[in-house]
Design a protein around this nucleic acid. Structure first.
Length: 810
RNA sequence: GCCGGUGUGUCGGAAUGGCAGACGAGGAGGACUCAAAAUCCUUUGGUGGCAACACCGUGUGGGUUCAAGUCCCACCACCGGCACCA
């Protein structure tokens, strides 16, 4: 019974994470630590905003948010005001599909999901500024998504086009090229088919050069830059006209290798090419028509790689403009209709695909670049490098291929049978979706005026209530069924007109949301130029690599457009990008609901607390690398926090004097943590803290300044415990108002150093020498320590200052 | 096929060309406990040895170097991206 009191007292002293975290969550809500005094420089640290799904967050989502919060707090303690917002990317298919399943309006389920996810996000303990919160489905937000569309339309960057589109029969939706993976729907993995539909397109291709060249200015992972570069796919070459034999018209081909023009031995057109059917002769007509029809029915998958090449001879010939050679014209589906001109000249000696086709159909092969200075006998594969001297090439003979490759387009242009040309792989952005849960496209179709934009003062065009969200088999949006909404007057001529019923793709809101955060309540502009100039662009953007191409490319495109029309004063929205790795399930497999291996942060927080989870998210592995969750791993960081707590509590009221050793440890801690933080090696920051904790715990006592330094350094990582201990150390103001400590390199210097001594590369002894000892002194001590082993001739003595001695004996 | 990335104990991982395996997890042994949990201490790459110690060891094979996980060459495996773009 007498033990009860002492036990209770003991309880009050041990680390009680939930009490501490609740306490500081409340205090920080009333007194935010990140404030804008108008004088501090800004630092914009952005998280990729989440889609508020019903499943909520798992520990993988947390990782990026923890990294960005640590970085934000560190910057904050270095004197910046941090723009650190959070919002919800809430339009899109999953909410709509969920609505269809449950009969619940997506607005209801979305609001519910946002509520839950916001609760979870708040548990991270991040310094998010909730006054900036936004939701892409809020009319006050999507008004400006629509406004941007109107501007794009007015500048000629939005247009309608009837085109065969990727159609997912299961989702009953048109998919962007970006949403088709291996010929299958990215979302439901059904086989994607083609369907002819009228679509809204955005001319991202007009920005292709700028999107490519802008990458050079960005501090992004090389991998992501490469992916965007490949996606944009710029190439330089020439368009060359080949007259059709016996006719007046010509076939224009695109080639990046006009240097090999003399090596062309046949031509291939895509089956869809406008001239294809007309090139057939009476003898070949049947075969040609059949080939064209078969190709039209083939799915994308069948036309892809791996399959043996097919083709049909049209019976017609083209004339090589350089030497008058007659080249048979073939059709084959290995030539893509929508790239270049849909027709190619074939140089089998110097192109793998042409070589394969020539071998299969027994077509001639003419080598025009000498490999290793000679003509290849019995060629087994194409020589594709532009490296060698030209042969069999008329007056080009003797020229260097590499040089000619650059000059040939201009040569062709001078001769008048073609022109220099650059091409891109990137296509215009299919911007309409035939679904309900998206921003209505602010266009009115008038029988007389055509497509006209909704006047800006009438924005937003509100998404109307609808009986059924079901997508239709015809590919029409569910909005088309609401007559009262569809029928309207033309804003130009006043006649009866109809609203556009397509909605925007999910990418719309995320393409510009980062601009809105800094002026989220503005109802006059999407962002005031003043605030844009003050707080934008984003200095650090943190999120998964899965958005390497689409989201990041679309955002850059819209930012460049908004720059052109003067809304913002910069062309690139995200100066630095960091891709955090995924958190995988316990066995290294991706977390998924169906596998039942999803780890919920809610459970972790209950058992270990926010600070432990934050530390473990960092400790789990290098931040840019995928890491497998280990349930027991979090015990380690939790134990560390308990020891840290005990260390500070046990020493805080003792009057310990710091000796040089303690001062050295303190400055080493500052130096190590700061360096590792700056280089984003966050996992080793945590292990660094553990190491220092272990060495401090071995000392008889720890002085106050070291304790305070320690608490400050740990605060960006484990904010709650740090703030509590800061208060326990007697401070009235927040630890986050404390400046980031600076390491003193003088104080870090050791008096004596341990130097390992190697003989022939193997460590045989370790000697203690004064830090200031000369090379000669160290070597003398070293030789003495290993004298038994220095039996032969000492042929080399190496001393790397402060590091190692190596004595080479023969 | 092309382009990236990765490869280190039982596991996650650490290491400006300078003592490989920090730190954590797990294991083993011990202390405390009637017992368990928690906590604390010791130990923990492999092989041989009672031991001091010796040898081997960072995917494989070569090379450069006094010294290589780290640099160079050739390969292998796994993961990711692109995929007939002329």
């Amino acid at each position: 019974m007498s033990g009860k009191g002492t036990e209770k007292d003991k309880m009050a002293e041990i680390y009680n994470h939930s009490e501490i975290e609740d306490k500081w969550t409340k205090i920080w809500e009333e007194h935010p630590v990140n404030t804008d005094d108008g004088k501090k420089p800004k630092y914009y640290c952005l998280d990729m905003f989440p889609y508020p799904s019903g499943a909520g967050l798992h520990v993988g989502h947390w990782r990026g948010y923890v990294i960005s919060d640590v970085w934000s707090r560190y910057k904050m303690m270095n004197g910046y005001y941090i723009v650190h917002p959070m919002g919800w990317d809430a339009f899109g298919l999953p909410a709509e599909n969920y609505a269809i399943q449950t009969g619940q309006h997506p607005r209801i389920s979305t609001a519910e999901n946002i509520r839950n996810i916001k609760r979870q996000v708040k548990q991270i303990g991040a310094i998010y500024d909730w006054d900036m919160e936004l939701d892409t489905t809020d009319p006050a937000f999507y008004k400006w998504s629509q406004w941007i569309f109107v501007q794009l339309f007015k500048h000629g960057y939005a247009y309608e086009k009837e085109m065969p589109l990727n159609w997912c029969p299961h989702c009953r939706a048109v998919l962007a090229n970006e949403e088709v993976v291996d010929g299958k729907c990215e979302r439901c993995h059904s086989e994607v088919t083609k369907k002819n539909l009228r679509q809204w397109m955005l001319k991202i291709t007009e920005f292709a050069d700028r999107l490519l060249d802008g990458l050079d200015t960005l501090d992004w992972p090389e991998k992501v830059k490469k992916m965007q570069t490949d996606w944009i796919g710029r190439s330089f070459g020439a368009e060359v006209d080949f007259k059709i034999d016996g006719r007046d018209d010509a076939i224009t081909v695109y080639t990046t290798r006009p240097d090999t023009l003399y090596g062309a031995t046949f031509m291939v057109l895509a089956p869809e090419h406008a001239l294809s059917a007309g090139l057939a002769t009476p003898e070949t007509k049947e075969a040609v028509d059949k080939y064209i029809a078969d190709s039209a029915n083939k799915s994308n998958v069948d036309r892809l790689q791996g399959k043996e090449k097919t083709g049909v001879f049209t019976g017609s010939y083209a004339i090589n403009p350089l030497n008058g050679a007659k080249l048979p014209i073939w059709l084959s589906d290995y030539v893509l209709a929508d790239y270049g001109t849909g027709a190619i000249m074939c140089v089998p000696a110097h192109d793998d695909r042409d070589f394969e086709f020539a071998k299969k159909f027994d077509l001639p092969i003419i080598q025009v670049i000498a490999k290793d200075g000679k003509e290849i006998e019995d060629m087994q594969e194409a020589y594709t490098e532009a490296n060698g001297t030209m042969i069999n090439s008329g007056d080009w003979n003797g020229m260097e291929s590499a040089e000619l490759k650059v000059k040939a387009p201009h040569y062709v242009e001078e001769k008048g049978f073609g022109k220099a040309k650059k091409n891109f792989k990137i296509r215009d952005w299919v911007f309409s979706r035939q679904r309900y849960w998206g921003e209505p496209i602010p266009i009115i179709h008038c029988p007389d005026c055509g497509a006209v934009t909704v006047p800006e003062e009438e924005l937003p065009v509100l998404l109307p209530e609808v009986e059924s969200y079901q997508p239709t088999d015809t590919g029409e949006s569910p909005l088309a069924a609401i007559d009262s909404w569809v029928n309207c007057k033309c804003p130009v001529c006043g006649k009866d007109a109809k609203r556009e019923t397509n909605t925007m793709p999910q990418w719309a809101g995320s393409s510009w949301y980062f601009l809105r955060y800094v002026d989220v309540h503005n109802d006059k502009a999407l962002v005031s130029r003043e605030k844009a100039d003050k707080y934008l662009p984003v200095d650090m953007y943190i999120g998964g690599v899965e958005h390497a191409v689409l989201h990041l490319l679309y955002s850059r495109f819209w930012t460049k457009f908004l720059y052109d029309i003067g809304v913002v004063g910069f062309e690139e929205p995200f100066l630095k990008l960091f891709n955090q790795g995924m958190v995988l399930g316990p066995k290294g497999v991706k977390m998924s609901k169906s596998l039942g291996n999803v780890i919920s942060p809610d459970d972790m927080i209950r058992d270990y607390g926010c600070d432990s989870l934050r530390l473990y998210e960092l400790f789990i592995g290098p931040p840019q690398q995928d890491s497998a969750w280990d349930d027991r791993g979090i015990d380690g960081v939790y134990r560390f926090l308990c020891k840290f707590w005990n260390l500070v509590m046990e020493n805080k009221d003792r009057d310990v004097k710091a000796d040089t050793e303690l001062i050295r440890i303190r400055h080493k801690l500052i130096s190590t943590i700061t360096q590792r933080l700056e280089s984003f090696s966050l996992n080793t920051v945590v292990s660094g803290f553990m190491e220092f904790n272990n060495s401090l715990a071995k000392l008889p006592g720890v002085d106050r300044e070291t304790l305070e330094t320690y608490v400050i350094l740990l605060s960006p990582f484990a904010p709650h415990i740090a703030e509590e201990l800061w208060q326990q150390l007697g401070h009235d103001s927040s630890v986050f108002k404390a400046p980031w400590p600076e390491a003193d390199s003088e104080a870090m210097k050791e008096d004596t150093i341990e130097v390992p001594v190697q003989v022939n590369g193997k460590v045989r002894a370790t000697v203690s020498v004064p830090a200031e000892a000369s090379k000669e002194e160290v070597l003398a001590t070293a030789k003495e320590a290993v004298k038994d082993r220095l039996t032969g001739n000492l042929i080399k003595e190496i001393y790397v200052s402060g590091k190692i001695v190596n004595l080479v004996v023969k």
